[in-house]
C-alpha cells in the first residue's frame, strides 16, 4: 500500500534524506527507529504534505497513487493520517465542530453524504472511550490547554474517528507518562485491522513493547540502514544507536 523509493529530500539546501526506500503492505505495522537527526521527522513531514521540504529525487506511491502530487487535504481524503508530534492548539474551534467538519469535508470530497448527527455522536462516544478521553476534553477547543498526554490521546481519538488506511505516528510516545503510553497504545492496537497500516516513528523501543510491529527499520544518515523483525528493536535498545553507526563506518 505504501512504496517509498529512493527518496531524497532537502531542507534549506541541506540533504536530510538520501535514498530512503521502504515498502509496507496493508494491515502491517512498521516501526522506524533512529537516532536524533537521522531524518525521522523529515519523513513524517513529507508524508503529511508540508511544503517546507524539497524532494530532489525518488517517489512515494500510496494505494497506487503518487502521494507527492497530492496536497495535505487530498492526502487526508485518500486515507493518510498523521498523528503529529506537536499537535496545534486552535482556540475557538471546539473539538466536536472540528471533527464533524473534518469527517464531512472528507465525505464531501469523496462525493458522499454528510454523516448523520446521530451516527456521529455514537462514533464520538465509542472512539473517546478507546483513548479514555472524557467529555470535557471532547467539548473544549482543539488541544487548547491540553497536557502533552491529552494532546496525544486527542490525536489517536481523531485517528479513530477518521478511520484512515495509513496512520503515521510521529513520536507519539514522546512526552507520555506510563499511563498515557498504555492508553495510547491500547487505542492504536484496537484500531489495527487487515486494511489499516501503521507507520510508527519513534526514538525509543518502549512504545514497541505495547504496539508490536511486524517490521522494524533503522533510519540513519537519511537512509534505511537495517530492517528486521521486532527483535531488532530490542537489539537497538540493548546496544544503542552507536552500534549501528560503528557498523556503518566499517
Amino acid at each position: 500500500m505504501l512504496k517509498i523509493k529512493n527518496l531524497h529530500a532537502r531542507v534549506e539546501g541541506q540533504e536530510i534524506l538520501c535514498g530512503l526506500s521502504l515498502e509496507m503492505g496493508s494491515g502491517e505495522v512498521h516501526a522506524i527507529m533512529g537516532p536524533n537527526g537521522s531524518g525521522k521527522s523529515t519523513l513524517a513531514s513529507i508524508l503529511a504534505g508540508r511544503d517546507t521540504y524539497e524532494i530532489t529525487e525518488g517517489s512515494i506511491e500510496f494505494m497506487g497513487v503518487d502521494l507527492l502530487a497530492l496536497d495535505a487535504t487530498e492526502r487526508a481524503v485518500a486515507g493518510v493520517f498523521i498523528a503529529f508530534q506537536y499537535p496545534v492548539e486552535i482556540p475557538g474551534v471546539s473539538n466536536m465542530n472540528f471533527l464533524r467538519t473534518s469527517i464531512n469535508s472528507i465525505r464531501d470530497q469523496k462525493g458522499e453524504e454528510p454523516m448523520p448527527a446521530k451516527d456521529f455522536l455514537a462514533k464520538v462516544k465509542q472512539c473517546a472511550k478507546l483513548v479514555e478521553l472524557d467529555g470535557k476534553l471532547r467539548d473544549r477547543s482543539v488541544n487548547e490547554g491540553f497536557s502533552g498526554g491529552e494532546k496525544k490521546r486527542n490525536e489517536v481519538f481523531q485517528l479513530a474517528m477518521l478511520e484512515p488506511l495509513l496512520a503515521v505516528l510521529d513520536e507519539t510516545d514522546s512526552g507520555l507518562d506510563i499511563d498515557a503510553l498504555r492508553i495510547v497504545s491500547s487505542g492504536v492496537n484496537a484500531l489495527r485491522s487487515a486494511e489499516r497500516s501503521f507507520l510508527i516513528i519513534t526514538h525509543y523501543q518502549r512504545l514497541l513493547d505495547h504496539i508490536v510491529p511486524d517490521r522494524v527499520h533503522v533510519l540513519a544518515g537519511g537512509r534505511i540502514v537495517r530492517s528486521g523483525d521486532k527483535s531488532l528493536a530490542l537489539e537497538l535498545e540493548d546496544k544503542g544507536y552507536d552500534w549501528i553507526n560503528e557498523e556503518l563506518a566499517q
Partner: peptide, 11 residues
Amino acid sequence: ALFYLRSRGLT
C-alpha cells in the same frame, strides 16, 4: 493551524 486542519481533510 491551517495545515493541521487541512491534514484532517478540510480544504
